[in-house]
Design a binder for these strands. Structure first.
Lengths: 81, 81
DNA sequence: CATGCTTACGGATCACGTAACCATG
DNA sequence: CATGGTTACGTGATCCGTAAGCATG
């Protein structure tokens, strides 16, 4: 697992697509896809249901999102000192 | 920055040496050294005073430690679901 | 069929362990 | 001088962008 993985996942959920998330993270679509696959592998469970548009988080995805959000904001605070 | 960087730093502070931290992380001494250098580069400030034994965190190191601790425990919680 | 997610590929970067080196007590 | 931290080097893994393929509405 990785901070960028978490950031990518949160960004996809927030924006509803990998395209928008990619733009925000200054990455390409494919890079975002892979970061999320990486996170799913690390956690051993799917986090997104890709068969809908916009993409929807699974139940595990929702829980992960709630965990990741404060973690990322703490890390951002840390970076700013 | 990276979760392993934070984990390495916290582990060194907790154990007072890179040797013990390395064992706990299943890494070598040199890998731990580099993870901490990496974190110091990312934050732009030294985190450890290596001229003493056991190694002592700097003031910035103490703050970083306090930030990192809850972040890592959140991530561990996340891993266990 | 337009938009968006995924996979294959090649190239660049990063991270590791080993081993040699430096520093502290 | 024993223990612990750092640097050099070579190798393997990781990550990215491009481009082509697949799926949804």
């Amino acid at each position: 697992m990785n901070l960028i993985d978490l950031e990518a996942f949160v960004s996809v959920v927030d924006h509803g697509s990998t395209v928008a998330a990619a733009a925000r993270l200054h990455l390409t679509q494919s890079a975002v896809t892979r970061r999320i696959q990486n996170l799913e592998d690390a956690l051993g469970t799917p986090l997104l249901d890709r068969r809908t548009r916009p993409v929807q988080p699974t139940r595990a995805g929702q829980e992960t999102y709630e965990f990741a959000k404060p973690v990322l904001s703490s890390v951002n605070d840390l970076r700013q000192e």
